[in-house]
């Protein structure tokens, strides 16, 4: 089976600060990959490049065999709306809309009826254990509730690829477990490919494999630290 998403030799530099230095990745349908590594190693940047939010400086990203990194932003945002689900580390919800409306929005933008979209939103909010947040605006939610509402918004379209940057960072361990079980279920039942950035080994353990970054590169040792070099 050919991979659904591939990245080859991705590089990205912010000003003079290299954030990615030649990343390769193959992602298959139904697969969960955990991206780990120390703070600042390039995890979020990688996620942004893979999901088409950011264009890499060089290298390529392909979705179902087609280049997406060099396409125009309208095409990439269309892709994000229809094929990808993205939960950003500092994801924003629209502050004037209720949680349910925020979650329903991607479906309505895709032409779905408000009724169906709101029903789907309620379903996903309930699955993530935040049904009680449905009628609240984001300003009235806790950090952990916000995180799950944003995740519901990323999952509601039943994306082919789900990118989640620290989806459990603000959650207690039981809520984190609920979230990870749900991600595992959609991967298994809907064939969703999941890229999950996490610092937490108990979260990474839900993934079949880990991609450990160190200073913008894949660390083949999987350790994420410089080793064996006495300082």
């Amino acid at each position: 089976m050919s991979p659904i998403l591939t990245a080859r030799d991705l590089t990205k530099t912010y000003g003079v600060q290299p954030a990615l230095r030649g990343i390769d990745l193959d992602l298959h349908e139904g697969e969960i990959v955990a991206v780990r590594g120390r703070s600042g190693c390039g995890k979020s940047t990688l996620l942004h490049c893979l999901s088409g939010i950011l264009a890499p400086d060089s290298g390529e990203v392909r979705f179902r065999g087609d280049r997406i990194d060099d396409t125009a932003e309208p095409y990439r945002s269309e892709l994000r709306r229809t094929q990808f689900g993205v939960l950003l580390q500092h994801g924003h919800l629209i502050s004037e809309l209720t949680s349910a409306e925020n979650v329903a929005l991607p479906l309505m933008l895709g032409g779905g009826s408000r009724r169906a979209a709101m029903a789907a939103a309620d379903t996903w909010l309930a699955r993530l254990g935040v049904a009680e947040a449905a009628e609240q605006i984001p300003g009235r939610l806790s950090g952990g509730q916000l995180q799950r509402v944003a995740l519901a918004r990323a999952m509601v379209t039943q994306p082919v690829v789900l990118f989640a940057d620290e989806p459990t960072g603000a959650l207690d361990s039981l809520a984190g477990e609920l979230v990870m079980k749900l991600l595992t279920r959609v991967a298994r039942e809907q064939g969703t490919a999941v890229v999950v950035v996490t610092h937490d080994a108990t979260v990474a353990a839900y993934a079949e494999r880990e991609l450990v970054l160190r200073d913008g590169e894949v660390d083949p040792t999987g350790l994420g630290v410089a080793i064996g070099v006495p300082a």
């Binding site: 990870m180 279920r185 080994a201 108990t202 353990a205 839900y206």
Partner: peptide, 13 residues
């Protein structure tokens, strides 16, 4: 340790 964690997590999910 990592592979043991994966094994136990799979059991759990």
């Amino acid at each position: 340790h990592t592979s043991r964690m994966r094994e136990l997590t799979r059991l759990k999910s």
